[in-house]
Nucleic acid binder design. Sequence first.
DNA 1: GATCATTACGAGCCGCGTAATCATT
DNA 2: AATGATTACGCGGCTCGTAATGATC
Lengths: 283, 283
Amino acid sequence: MRMDPRFLRTFVTVARVESFSDAARELGYTQSAVSQHVAALESDLGTALLQRRPVAPTEAGERLLEHAHAILLRLDSARADVVRLAAGPPGRLTLGATPLAASLSVPAAVAAACAALPRLDVTVRVADRDTVAIGVATGALDAGLVDGIAAPGDGLRLPDTGLPVAAFAEAPLAVALPDGHPLAGRAGLRLEDLVDARWIEAPGVTAPLAEIAMLARAEGFRAALRYEGSDVGGLLALVAAGHGLALLPARVLAGAGVALVEPRLVHRTELLRGSEAGAALRL
Amino acid sequence: MRMDPRFLRTFVTVARVESFSDAARELGYTQSAVSQHVAALESDLGTALLQRRPVAPTEAGERLLEHAHAILLRLDSARADVVRLAAGPPGRLTLGATPLAASLSVPAAVAAACAALPRLDVTVRVADRDTVAIGVATGALDAGLVDGIAAPGDGLRLPDTGLPVAAFAEAPLAVALPDGHPLAGRAGLRLEDLVDARWIEAPGVTAPLAEIAMLARAEGFRAALRYEGSDVGGLLALVAAGHGLALLPARVLAGAGVALVEPRLVHRTELLRGSEAGAALRL
DNA sequence: GATCATTACGAGCCGCGTAATCATT
DNA sequence: AATGATTACGCGGCTCGTAATGATC
């Protein structure tokens, strides 16, 4: 046997929807076919991958799931990459961007693109980081601008698609504080002085606290509040109202925040180029 | 069509050996089958992937090659990962190691393993970094100890196999200098002071100069001599004879080298755990 | 007993080999 | 001419759907 990607796709779907029947409907197969796909994988690998009733991955299944996701993504990425190269530059440019990248970097990037290719029809689509990366990889987007927090010179942790990281910008970070906060007005802050502070978890805008904690090699960051929006304004309003702090690029705080001096972390923006048209973008 | 992994494997092989006939022999197919595999991929993707006579990848083919290598590796890795989990702990432990890891870390690691599992039959196999990583991923090795140069806290750049990096050690680096070198005896050195020095390129022992230059964000490192051995002794002899410098973990220089203070780079050792038996290893 | 997964089995497609054809050196 | 890639074509195996069986709530 050979771990046919179709079987892997079926397996992943079954694990996601936790039902053979629903997976069959979603994929346009019969229950029987789905059952045979899973059985083929299990007999090939010599292990049970799923428990039935309720449907749940076994330990081996969990392992395979991770690999299967990566494999299927890379397979889609390969197809998109090659057909894009063959198709040549498209007339329209669909650009994906994370929210902060959209407000900080997209305007300049689009201006550069329009200057380089005057007759270019541009669409900007905002989504979270992985969605943008996957979109660029699979061809739904021609390019992507994603941002995140990283050590200076380090790349962002993105799903492995083999995409070239073509350009990037690094900018200083600052802590957003409410007016009258005891630390406001300081010249610079160290993150460790703020482990016991109230933070706002806003994964749609800035990096999750767990990721920041890992980068800072610190522990104990607690979220006082979770903000699921993806706009900076809403988050800043919560900070101003004293509900907690947030770590953001200094630029969006317009001088109102206090610079982060330790650990050395930066706000990093990366350009993921899918099609050649993405080359017209500059940061 | 569906980019069958068998087709990808055939395509990769054809590109490598630059011949349909030879690839057919190697894979146990007929020429015809190989031709059909490539034709299937090309018709599926709508592009030529190979030029014939001489056989060479097109631009699109080059792209697909990169993806295909990653996909096939991950596929093997997935299979090995799952069957290993199902097989349970093996009686023998085959450990792969890069040369420096073998001399610096393997003894202690094996001692720990033997202490934990008294009746363990251990084999150590030395190879370069990618070979070890691929060996662990595909199940040829139960665990691997690989070393390299990185910024503190950064992981090594390894092929993407989804393997967990289970443990690691970081140790200071030093520059190996011949006796009587003008800089010998200094307390510490900065790499930029040495860009114009004569370096020894020894990819089998330490990181290639190009990688070091990238990490240091410097340019102009020139290799005065290329050493293709994989033993430290030979390299040190060349350094002592004044043929050039080398960047090595301070420990192997036994105090004879001069510590590297800028940029902040460390010698990093990572443990790649394949089977559960690898868990017995400690650094 | 209803829902859901598995097994049995037949139909159709697809990939492989044989062999003939075409192309290049 | 000889080597090497492609095309023609038929066999065999694989995968899917239908339908019956089995299991679980």
